[in-house]
Design a protein around this nucleic acid. Structure first.
Length: 795
DNA sequence: AGCTGTGGCAGGGAGG
DNA sequence: CCTCCCTGCCAC
């Protein structure tokens, strides 16, 4: 692999670049006063800009002054794509200052790719990346994990200054695994050995689970302490931090990630978070859970809870070593599962692999748009000010427990709308946006076909990764329209997409009702409904959904996505399902939120289970048993503490309180009072003390780790009231007398579920404002159907 | 620098 | 009690 052009600014001393052919450039560098030359892979982001546009831009990128036809030009070479992005944005800013040359919202900044056409063709055909033409399995990946020692386990924040690294576990895909042992070596020597190992093994990719949040910052901190240079870059440089805001001297901003020259850091935690953003199936992001969930946990896997690490280090270090090795194996498997799609994305987008694995979706879309504009030597617009005003439509029509439910949703609703209506951002003059989306949809279908036809498992998984990398891009197009920093964003068009989606959903609802089905709940692109009486069994159900789908415009498909024996419908975006295999799925922040106390979550789940099975006696005894547990201090702090994320740094919180811009919140107050070094974005677990239920939380909360089982001081009254708050969610399912009977402990005459039934209610429509009532009766479909011929023939 | 969107619910503080 | 406003978390 050629790394000459890789790095923070390796081209600073380049004096000339000549393109030899479509794939190679010859680079002349000045080193120690001498000129040396070497060939390198053609780097895509070289362009000529007129001096005017680059004025004020850091000179380090100005390589050579050229004589242009009409103006002076500079050949600017950008070592990283983001530098080019910067330059474009800088040029736009500079240009917009000279008002006389401003043309409406458009600038005429001209960025000319060096030998643009042949190069771009080459790029479009094969993709550009440092991993060009490589398969995921050919990349040298290296896994890294550390175990730290602390005397006392702190589950709010495990990081204390007296912590130290006790084991470093490393592994790679070339079949070796290694433990660097603190008992034998001591921390300083371990760290030195780690640097040596990385340089010796020379990996392309360094992976770990939560390495950006823990392992890397921790290792760097310990290195600093011991005076060890963590110089693992391919050019011998140290890793650098990537922060949300540029680092200023007075306050260091949160570290998002790390970069190092010549290698790619990949944090599998970020991959998991992104995965769950669309899949929404994960209960936790912990390595052990994930290994179980994805099915690669070994049967012999060693488990050691976080608070027992130190004990094992002192008493049974052999087991700890096994545990650490299992961690590293699972990280490798996790990466093999989730990272290939990002790897292949690098061959599509031409952005560094590490950048793609940590960046959002809009950066990827913009890179594709920008590239085509550069290829066609067309100027690019600046971001348009504005806001998006519309989103998805969601509603609920019936609450209660219902039987035999169908779920149907529109396949890729927003991408389909963009393609069908050729949605184009206003300033996308070359109309790349819809064309690009169409191309990607086609490419994804081709990748899926190739995957089906592949004989080798390795080749199959490559095409699977490829198609899922296209999917990532496809799903981002709508989001890009409403992204207020996107060069090509267009809020009006974003609204057209959402409004059309709303109209389609309302049309589907209407169709269900026309056939005498009952719509229960709808959200954005799908609906739950009870089919008409004459539709029985899965075969007729799918046929019914197909009939609904046929009433939709060309290019829009409604798909049958599941049937459920029971549904508990509670509120918009809040419901529970019982499938035919008796599995329960609970959705919605009011029923499952991680911020709820664990025992409340568990209680709600058990109540829902009873309700779905219409087991009212069970519901009552559940309530009684929880009341008793709370009264007898029978619940552990782990189950009754509340865990919240602290989105803002403590300093920001304190300042906003002082300025009166914000109300005090218990989580922040606990952190302040206890002096726990919780950083931005981390979570804090706390519980409520005091003697009566109505205490102010901001004054009566303590960190969870201060709770002592022998002297339990949690506020029993408060937690009983929390239980009652939770129970009240079920009030809507009963008449008041029945509700009181079930959720009560004084059953002098014994509890009987006889005569109690679960209520089904039709939800009153929300009162409409006058402006909304006007088009109340309208189908809203006119937005879509300019002429009725667009509708599919129902066949 | 690095950041996709809107809609909806719950819980808390503050003030009436 | 109530309403308003904020934050956090979640659905899509």
């Amino acid at each position: 692999m050629n790394i000459l052009l890789h790095g923070h600014n390796p081209l600073e001393y380049v004096v000339a670049v000549h393109q030899v052919n479509d794939t190679t450039v010859r680079v002349y560098r000045r080193e120690n006063g001498k000129i040396s030359q070497s060939d390198a892979e053609f780097f895509p982001f070289m362009f000529i800009a007129s001096e005017h546009y680059l004025e004020g831009y850091p000179k380090k990128h100005w390589i050579k002054k050229l004589e242009g036809n009409n103006y002076y030009q500079y050949l600017a070479v950008f070592p990283r794509w983001s530098d080019l992005w910067d330059a474009v944005r800088h040029a736009l800013r500079t240009y917009n200052k000279s008002a006389q040359k401003r043309i409406d919202n458009y600038t005429e900044a001209e960025f000319i790719l060096l030998r643009a056409d042949p190069v771009s063709q080459y790029l479009m055909q094969s993709g550009i990346t440092y991993f060009k033409n490589m398969a995921f399995n050919d990349v040298h990946r290296f896994q890294l994990d550390i175990e730290t020692y602390s005397k006392e386990y702190k589950f709010s924040n495990p990081r204390k200054t007296e912590d130290r690294i006790i084991l470093i576990t490393v592994s790679d895909n070339r079949g070796w695994e290694e433990i660097i042992d603190g008992k034998k070596l001591g921390e300083q020597e371990m760290l030195t050995k780690l640097v040596f190992l990385i340089l010796e093994k020379d990996p392309d990719v360094i992976e770990g689970h939560n390495i950006f949040g823990f392992d890397l910052p921790y290792i760097l901190k310990r290195c600093e302490l011991h005076g060890v240079e963590f110089a693992i870059g391919r050019d011998g440089s140290n890793p650098r931090t990537i922060t949300a805001r540029p680092a200023s001297s007075d306050q260091d901003s949160a570290i998002l990630a790390y970069d190092v020259n010549g290698r790619n850091f990949v944090d599998t935690l970020l991959l998991v978070q992104t995965y769950d953003f669309s899949a929404r199936t994960l209960e936790s992001f912990g390595l052990k859970y994930l290994a179980q969930h994805f099915g690669f946990a070994s049967e012999k896997r060693v488990y050691i809870p976080g608070n027992k690490i130190s004990w094992h280090w002192d008493n049974d270090s052999a087991k700890l070593r096994d545990y650490a090795l299992d961690d590293i194996r699972e990280t490798r498997m996790l990466s093999e599962h989730l990272s290939p799609s990002y790897f292949y994305l690098a061959q599509v987008c031409g952005l560094p692999y590490s950048f793609l694995s940590r960046s959002g979706s809009t950066a990827k879309i913009e890179s594709l748009l920008l590239r085509e504009y550069l290829r066609q030597k067309h100027s690019v617009p600046k971001p348009t000010p504005g806001v998006q005003t519309t989103g998805g439509y969601s509603d609920i029509f019936v609450t209660g427990v219902l039987s035999d439910i169908i779920h149907a949703d529109v396949e890729s609703l927003y991408p389909s709308i963009i393609v069908s209506k050729s949605i184009t951002p206003r300033y996308d003059e070359l109309k790349i946006f819809p064309t690009l989306l169409k191309d990607l949809l086609t490419m994804r279908l081709e990748a899926k076909r190739a995957m089906r036809e592949a004989r080798e498992p390795l080749s199959r998984s490559k095409f699977d990764a490829l198609q899922s990398s296209y999917k990532i891009l496809i799903n981002s197009f709508y989001g890009y329209l409403g992204y207020n920093r996107g060069l090509f964003s267009d809020f009006e068009q974003a609204d057209v997409v959402t409004t059309t989606g709303q109209a389609l959903l309302r049309h589907i609802m209407k169709q269900v009702e026309v056939y005498n089905g009952t719509v229960i709940e709808v959200d954005t692109d799908g609906l739950y409904f009870v089919p008409p009486d004459n539709v029985k069994g899965e075969q007729q159900e799918t046929a019914f959904v197909t009939r609904l789908s046929n009433s939709l415009p060309e290019g829009i498909t409604l798909a049958y996505s599941g049937r459920y024996s029971k549904m508990l419908s509670y509120k918009k975006k809040n419901y529970a399902l019982l499938d035919n295999a008796d599995r329960i799925t609970i959705k919605g922040s009011s029923l499952t939120a991680r911020s709820l106390e664990r025992f409340i979550r568990q209680y709600l789940r058990q109540c829902i289970e009873c309700l779905l099975h219409e087991n009212l006696a069970g519901l009552h005894s559940l309530y009684v048993s929880y009341v008793n547990e709370i009264r007898n201090h029978g619940i552990d702090v782990y189950d009754f503490c509340r865990t919240e994320n602290l989105r803002d740094p403590i300093e920001v919180y304190t300042a906003e309180i002082a300025a009166g811009k914000r109300k005090p919140a218990a989580a922040y107050e606990v952190v302040k009072r206890a002096g726990i070094p919780v950083r931005q974005g981390e979570s804090i677990s706390y519980y409520v003390t005091g003697s009566h239920p109505g205490v102010k939380l901001i004054d009566n909360s303590k960190p969870a780790e201060e709770w002592d089982r022998n002297f339990p001081d949690e506020n029993v009254g408060y937690y009983l009231s929390r239980l009652d708050d939770a129970s009240e969610k079920f009030e809507v399912f009963f008449v008041p007398e029945d509700f009181k009977k079930i959720f009560s402990v004084d059953d002098l005459f014994g509890f009987s579920h006889q005569g109690i039934s679960i209520l089904r209610r039709v939800v009153e429509p929300e009162r409409l404002t006058t402006s909304e009532t006007n088009d109340d009766e309208k189908d809203g479909f006119g937005i879509w159907l300019d002429n009725p011929d667009n509708e599919k023939t129902s066949e």
